[in-house]
Simulated scan of single mutants.
Amino acid sequence: MDDEDDLGPEIPYLSAIGALMYLAYHTQPDISFAVNLLSRFSSYPTQRHWNGIKHLSLFTSKPKDSRLDFPLPPSPPSRPVIGHLHLLLSVLIHKSFQKLSSKYGPFLYLRIFNVFIVLVSSSSIAYEIFKKHDMIVSFRGLLPRHESLLFGSSTFLMAPYGDYWKFMKKLIVSNLLGSQALERSRGIRAKEIEKFYSNLLDK
């Protein structure tokens, strides 16, 4: 196929762009420029653009020093680079999950490029995870942009659950969101709302 030939509907160009955008936002901001460039051709992609996606996918492979050195749940057969993406594109996403769970079991490990997913379709397993092991799954780690731009785990919203998080929650509830604090700021909030309405009516 020539590089300038249009892609057929069987090539999941839009799905690949969506997956790469997810990676660019959450885990690999260094590929944002290339993903945005390729997304401009979503309406009329050619083989050259598809080759660009495949080359870009090489930069999203699993790192050699991965921290996933513990036993993983069962996993369906995957493909190089894209992982299990091809299993999720045939039908609607919830039907794809249902089909995978029916075939491979209620507790699965999936990989979309370098994003790792645990699929739970059993209420008893979900209870085990979110009730008995909630302390473990409550913190998902920091995204690169949060680590560099938002002072990492020193912020209240991104901090892992623990003594610091409980202290900050108590401090915010008592001094910022408590009934006395809200009463003290009533006048300020009324003025800001009035200013907002004025600006809205002026426009």
Rank of each mutant, 00 (worst) to 15 (best):
M1F: 06
M1K: 08
D3C: 04
D5A: 14
D6H: 10
G8H: 10
E10F: 07
A16N: 05
I17F: 03
L20K: 00
L20I: 02
A24P: 05
A24Q: 05
T27L: 07
Q28K: 13
A34D: 09
V35K: 01
N36K: 13
L37T: 11
L38W: 00
S39N: 02
F41C: 07
S42H: 06
S43L: 12
S43Q: 14
Y44D: 10
T46Q: 11
R48L: 09
R48N: 09
H49G: 01
H49C: 03
W50R: 01
I53K: 00
L56N: 00
T60H: 01
K62F: 03
P63G: 01
K64D: 14
D65S: 14
S66C: 04
S66K: 00
L68F: 04
L68S: 02
P73M: 03
P74I: 10
S75V: 02
P76R: 01
P77I: 07
P80V: 04
G83F: 00
G83Y: 00
H84Y: 06
H84E: 05
H84K: 08
H86Y: 14
L89G: 08
I93H: 11
I93Y: 10
F97V: 05
F97N: 02
Q98H: 14
Q98E: 15
Q98V: 04
Q98P: 01
S101Q: 13
S101C: 12
P106Y: 13
F107P: 02
L108M: 06
Y109C: 09
L110T: 02
R111G: 02
F113R: 02
N114P: 03
V115D: 06
I117C: 12
V118N: 09
L119G: 04
L119P: 03
L119I: 04
L119R: 03
S122W: 09
S123M: 12
S124W: 07
A126I: 05
K132Y: 12
H133Y: 09
H133C: 05
D134R: 08
V137W: 14
R140H: 06
L142T: 02
L142E: 06
L143D: 04
P144T: 05
R145I: 04
H146C: 06
H146D: 11
H146P: 00
E147S: 09
L149R: 08
L149P: 01
L149N: 09
L150K: 09
L150F: 12
F151V: 03
S153W: 01
S154Y: 09
A159V: 00
Y161N: 09
Y161C: 05
G162T: 04
G162H: 05
D163W: 07
W165F: 14
F167E: 12
K169L: 08
K170A: 12
K170V: 04
I172K: 10
S174E: 14
S174L: 11
N175L: 09
L177G: 07
G178M: 07
S179M: 09
S179K: 14
S179R: 12
Q180W: 06
A181F: 07
A181K: 08
R186W: 05
R186V: 05
A190S: 13
K191S: 10
K191F: 01
E192T: 06
I193T: 08
F196L: 12
S198R: 15
S198Y: 12
N199G: 15
L200S: 13
D202C: 11
D202I: 07
K203G: 07
